[in-house]
């Protein structure tokens, strides 16, 4: 059963009509085929036009869509020989952040990213992608491990934010995020970050300080959730849509602000409608990004990354 978003009503109707048509057993088969063709053309046009002009608020819904590819999908489609590495060596293994070594086009890479989970059980296991300090400390460990063995790093960012809980605060959530950001800036191997869904505040930035920051066409990346921003600045979370517009959270805005380097195109109707095409698109973008750094010295790779982030904030809209 597909999940439709509230702005997809006419899309849902069309798709349901197409399904009904296709399930018609017999009758005038040529006429049915023609009608299906016509409806599919119409659907294609509708999806294109709807997704070409998504508002910030609609993009948030797309970015949070439950069928959108998650880290586990990217790992199984883009990498071979993947071996998960667990634990922060201090307290526990936080499954909100998953990491490990695998091969990308034959080359060893370190993969680290948020995992939100796909059903109730896995969402609980992964804490909905909201990491605790142990998750960030695992990331730090894996970043340094990659650096030690000169293995490039690819991170996948998809989180509503770091987990706000007593235990998380008690064990130094703030320090853990700070150290993860710092580790991103310390490594001398290429670090490529892909914002695949939601880039929520500090919990996102802790994994997103890359030589190249790539962002999916309908992903969002923000300092605070629009709901949170609205409840502070407008004093009601009902103004979340206004906050989403004001905050400038879309890939298109962030490219203008030079916060990200590239927008990765999504299939017509969003990544959740076609995982295979999404994977192709992401694979190509990561491949190009890694290639760009293959001939650059390790010191230079780190310095370029630091320079880039030292200049953040010079460009306005």
């Amino acid at each position: 059963m597909q999940t439709y978003l509230d702005f997809e009503k006419s899309i849902a109707e069309l798709e349901s009509r197409i399904r009904d048509m296709k399930s018609l057993e017999s009758g005038d088969e040529i006429n049915i085929a023609e009608e299906v063709d016509r409806l599919e053309n119409k659907l294609d046009k509708l999806l294109r036009s709807t997704y070409a002009k998504l508002t910030s608020w609609e993009k948030i819904k797309v970015a949070r869509h439950p069928d959108r590819p998650h880290l586990s999908d990217y790992i199984s489609n883009l990498f071979t020989d993947f071996m998960e590495l667990s634990g922060d060596r201090n307290f526990s293994d936080d499954q909100a952040i998953i990491g490990g070594i695998g091969r990308f086009n034959g080359q060893s890479v370190m993969v680290v990213g948020h995992e939100k989970g796909n059903d109730t059980e896995s969402r609980i296991k992964h804490n909905f992608g909201m990491a605790r300090p142990e998750g960030f400390r695992k990331a730090v460990r894996l970043f340094h491990l990659a650096d030690q063995f000169k293995i490039p790093i690819v991170t996948f960012v998809d989180t509503a934010g770091a987990y706000p809980g007593i235990g998380a605060e008690e064990r130094g959530q703030a320090e853990a995020i700070a150290r993860s950001t710092e580790a991103c800036l310390d490594v001398k191997v290429p670090l490529i970050s892909v914002i695949v869904g939601e880039g929520g505040s500090g919990g996102a930035v802790a994994l997103a300080v890359g030589n190249k920051v790539l962002m999916m066409e309908h992903a969002v990346y923000s300092v605070i959730s629009p709901e949170g921003c609205a409840s502070i600045l407008w004093r009601t979370s009902e103004k979340a849509e206004d906050a989403a517009n004001a905050l400038k959270i879309t890939a298109q805005d962030l490219l203008k602000l030079e916060v990200i380097d590239e927008v990765i195109p999504e299939p017509i109707g969003g990544a959740h409608r076609d995982h295979e095409k999404t994977m192709k698109s992401v694979r190509k973008a990561i491949d190009n990004a890694l290639l760009e750094f293959s001939a650059i010295s390790s010191d230079k790779i780190m310095e370029l990354r630091r320079e880039k982030f030292l200049n953040m904030g010079n460009v306005g809209l």
């Binding site: 710092e182 800036l185 505040s201 923000s222 030292l310 904030g313």
Partner: peptide, 22 residues
């Protein structure tokens, strides 16, 4: 915390200032 009125650019001050410390 971060200045919400500067959106993502305020979030980017986290890595930016980290470079300064480094």
């Amino acid at each position: 915390g971060a200045r919400m009125q500067e959106g993502i650019l305020s979030l980017m001050q986290m890595p930016r200032c980290t470079v300064a410390v480094q």
